[in-house]
Design a protein around this nucleic acid. Structure first.
Lengths: 143, 143
DNA sequence: GAACAATTAGAAATCCTTTCGATTTAATGG
DNA sequence: CCATTAAATCGAAAGGATTTCTAATTGTTC
C-alpha cells in the first residue's frame, strides 16, 4: 500500500496531512472517528484543523480507498480495508477491529426482490457486529 | 393493529399525540423523519413540539413496535413493520416504501465468523436499497 | 522557479437532536 | 365522578457533530 500513489491515482494532491490521515487508518485497521484521528495527529502537526480531517476523510472515502462504518450512534467513523472487491465486514464491538467477510447474500437477495417483490436492487449494506477472536477470549476469562 | 393496546402493552400512556404519531407510520408504511411526522401532525394539533415527536419515536422504537432505518445520511428515520420476527428490509429509494425480506444470511455469517475468524456474532444489520415494483415501472416508462 | 489550482486554517454557522423546568394530562382507585 | 400521582408535553435553550466560508498556504506542472 503506497499512500502517495493511491492519492495520485484518485487525483488528489499528496500533502503530508492527507498522507498522515490515511496512514493512521492503514496502520491501525480499526474504525476511527474524525476527532480521534485529529487527536492522534495533533502531536505531529502544529497546525491541523478538524475540518481538514473531515474533508480528507470524505475525499478518501469518495475515492474508494477508505470506508464508512455503519454505526448505531449515527456518527462518522472510517476504516481502511485493502480488499477492494465487494464484500462485507465483521466489526468487533470491543476493540473496533474490522475484518473481511466472504459471505454476501447478494444473489439470494436479488432473486427474492426481483421474483417476489418485482423490484430492482440498487445497493445493499450489511454489517456484522460481535467480538473478535482476541476480545472474545478476553471477555470469557474476565467475566 | 390496535394502537392503544400496543402502547399499553409496552407500559406507555395512551395519549392522542402518541397515537397519532404511531398511526401515521402504520398508515403510510414508508420511513419518515421526525420532522416529516411533525409536519403531518401540525394541522391536527395546535400545540405539538418537535421534541415530543422525537421522544415518542424513540420510545416506540425502544418498545420494538417501530424501527429505525439505516440511512446513509445518518439522520433519524422510522418505519412501522408488523412482522416482529427477525428479518430485513427492502427500502425503495424513490418512494421510501419498506418491504419485508425473507432472506437473512445469519446462519452462514455466524458460521463464517466462528469457524474462520474465531469470533462471536452479537448482531447484524442488513438493508437492501432499490426500486419497488411501482417505482421501477414508473422509472422505466419515464426515462 | 513561476503560475495556477488545490489545500488548509480558523472561526463561525448550520442543523439535527436532546435537555430542562414548568405545566398539563392520562391512569388509578376511592 | 373526582382527587391523586406519575407520566407526558411545551417551549426555549443547549449541545454537539459536521459543514461552510474566506484568506492564506502549498503542491504540481511546465
Amino acid at each position: 500500500m503506497n499512500g502517495s500513489h493511491a492519492l495520485k491515482g484518485m487525483g488528489l494532491k499528496v500533502t503530508p496531512k492527507r498522507l498522515a490521515i490515511l496512514d493512521i487508518l492503514v496502520r491501525e485497521l480499526v474504525y476511527l472517528s474524525p476527532e480521534e484521528i485529529w487527536d492522534r495527529l495533533k502531536g505531529q502537526f502544529t497546525k491541523l484543523g478538524l475540518p481538514t480531517v473531515y474533508r480528507n476523510l470524505e475525499e478518501l472515502s469518495q475515492g474508494g480507498i477508505i470506508y464508512k462504518i455503519i454505526h448505531p450512534d449515527r456518527k462518522l467513523y472510517y476504516y481502511y480495508c485493502e480488499n477492494v472487491s465487494h464484500h462485507h465486514h465483521f466489526v468487533c464491538i470491543a476493540c473496533r477491529k474490522v475484518q473481511d467477510l466472504e459471505f454476501c447474500g447478494e444473489e439470494q437477495i436479488t432473486r427474492e426482490v426481483e421474483d417476489i417483490l418485482k423490484g430492482k436492487v440498487v445497493s445493499h449494506v450489511c454489517q456484522v457486529y460481535g467480538l473478535c477472536r482476541g476480545c472474545s477470549h478476553a471477555r470469557t476469562m474476565a467475566i
